[in-house]
Computed example of a mutant assay.
Amino acid sequence: MLNRLFGKPKQEANTLTTLDKLNETLEMLEKKEKVLLKKAAAEVEKAKEFAKVRNKRVAIQCLKRKRLYEQQIEQLGNFQLRVHDQMIMLEGAKATTETIDALGTGAAAMKAMQKATNIDDVDKTMDEINEQTKNMKQIQEALSAPIGAAADFDEDELEAELEELEGAELEEQLLQPATMAPTAPVQVPAGWQLARPIPQKHTAEEDELAALQAEMAL
């Protein structure tokens, strides 16, 4: 049907050839138009020169030839419009043909894929995927399960042992003596220089030595 409406590939080649021919014709018409424009301008200049020497008859003849050239220029302009119109129509038809061919190719490819893809095959593929997913979960669960001696441990016994450890730790913390309150700082009279800080726990000999050092400092 498409071939009957828009032609076969051979006709498409003929369309391209026709477009090339129309382009050549358009270029030829444009060249002729430029030549005639130059000739018409030249006749105007001649008419001016003959008018200056008061040769009215020859000047009028120049203007007549100029009018003839202008008529041909107008005719060539109409020819160019016709050629442009024909080219636009052919290019539009070519674009329409290519679009319909592309759509037809796409529809045929879609139809072929639908034929190749059976709904039963899709269902079968999805079942296989679900089965593989289920098997993978079972494998992961089997790998994560404890094995060997660890598998024989009783979880309840382990939790009871952990509670005993926590209770023993708490009892040990309660039996520890309370921490001693910090000793009040020693007031040192102004001007006294201590050789070194007096530790919080010291002996009587150390007290005497500290007092002697203080007196020496005075």
Rank of each mutant, 00 (worst) to 15 (best):
K48M: 08
I147P: 00
F79S: 11
K66Q: 12
Q72I: 00
Q80T: 05
T18W: 01
A40F: 00
K66D: 02
G92C: 04
A142T: 08
Q114I: 12
K137L: 05
A149N: 08
K21S: 14
T117D: 06
Q114E: 15
G191K: 01
V53W: 05
P182G: 15
A145M: 06
L209S: 15
E208H: 14
Q213S: 13
Q75K: 07
Q86S: 09
E161C: 04
G77M: 01
E141W: 01
L162K: 14
E91H: 07
D152W: 03
A178S: 09
A184D: 10
I60V: 12
M28H: 13
E24S: 10
A93Q: 09
M136W: 06
K134S: 13
A107W: 00
E157K: 04
N130T: 07
P185Q: 12
E215L: 14
T99V: 08
A151F: 02
A204R: 05
R4I: 04
M87S: 05
Q75G: 11
A214M: 11
P185W: 04
E161W: 06
L143A: 12
A181L: 09
N23T: 04
R57M: 14
E157R: 01
T125C: 10
K8A: 10
T203D: 06
P199D: 13
R67N: 09
R196G: 07
G7N: 00
R67V: 09
L26D: 06
A151D: 00
A184E: 09
E27N: 08
A95E: 05
E98Q: 10
E30K: 02
V44P: 00
